[in-house]
Design a protein around this nucleic acid. Sequence first.
DNA 1: CCGATAATGTTATACAATCACATAGAGGGT
DNA 2: ACCCTCTATGTGATTGTATAACATTATCGG
Lengths: 170, 170
Amino acid sequence: MTSDTRPVPVENSALIGFQKHDHESCVETALATAEERCRAEGLRLTPVRRKVLEMLVQEHRALGAYAILDRLREEGFGSQPPVAYRALDFLVENGFVHKIERLNAFVACAHPGATHSPAFMICRKCDAVVEAQSAPAKGALGAAARAVGFEIERTVVEAEGICPDCTKKA
Amino acid sequence: MTSDTRPVPVENSALIGFQKHDHESCVETALATAEERCRAEGLRLTPVRRKVLEMLVQEHRALGAYAILDRLREEGFGSQPPVAYRALDFLVENGFVHKIERLNAFVACAHPGATHSPAFMICRKCDAVVEAQSAPAKGALGAAARAVGFEIERTVVEAEGICPDCTKKA
DNA sequence: CCGATAATGTTATACAATCACATAGAGGGT
DNA sequence: ACCCTCTATGTGATTGTATAACATTATCGG
């Protein structure tokens, strides 16, 4: 289901996980998955929300709220910040989209369905963002939290560095 | 040297690491340590920079850039954003202060001197911020990075949840 | 069909960060 | 002491990010 690792014929290729993949089918799958989950859980994937998710899945990179807003305006939706932020809130709350705190920007979830605490690798040269899995509560941080009685609800894990593509170029 | 764990008589108590401690001596130690390191490394801990560090050590919690700027203004320093941001840049670059990406705010480093990749626990009720150590490159994230050829330079690790104090109150 | 609730739209504003340019201090070499 | 250079500070203006407050519209259950 979360298909970013399977080998596929590269027709319309783009970069995900620093690897080429069939982007067109990947977009369709992501939207279909989201729609189904919303149906199943009684969530309302309204036009604005769907459009924002579609944009993020299409782009496959982090977009700022105002870049998103610009495109919503072009598509005839409301043009004020709350329009974008509310859609993003919904998508983030329900795990369809993640916020990259380091960039104040948003990316579509690359592992929909998985119960995950995501981690990200962010290239400081080309701004590519790749999602990985993490389990920070299992390591030193989790131990520290238990030691002092802090209850972890959510974690932000973001690694900044250089992606393989930019390493090659240099 | 980094003394937040030693048992001390509680005279002027405050919260750090969710534990009471001798805050007055803790502030003095932190500033003295910073001054010494700057002398040793030829860094210039100018009045603005020192004041900002002092504020953050005093407060023992995350402050936004504009809160810092307000207090700089009161103390007779420049009143425009760059004044605060430049001081913060210096302090962050040299490890005296950390930025909390989740809050777009800044805290004094709690482990001065230690070569560290810090991790933070942030209480979503009272906004307390506690610094712990992490080694994210050793875990799942590090493995993922090596697998795809991503070179990690820096990591952001922030856990959001409820601190022991707020748990008790509820 | 009605009422409650959720979602959208809009105005205004707060908070975060950077650019560009002028001025002032600190340090090194002669 | 002087000048030169580099660093740091001060200021005005602007851009980007995010939320508050309130009116309007759509959706769903009864």
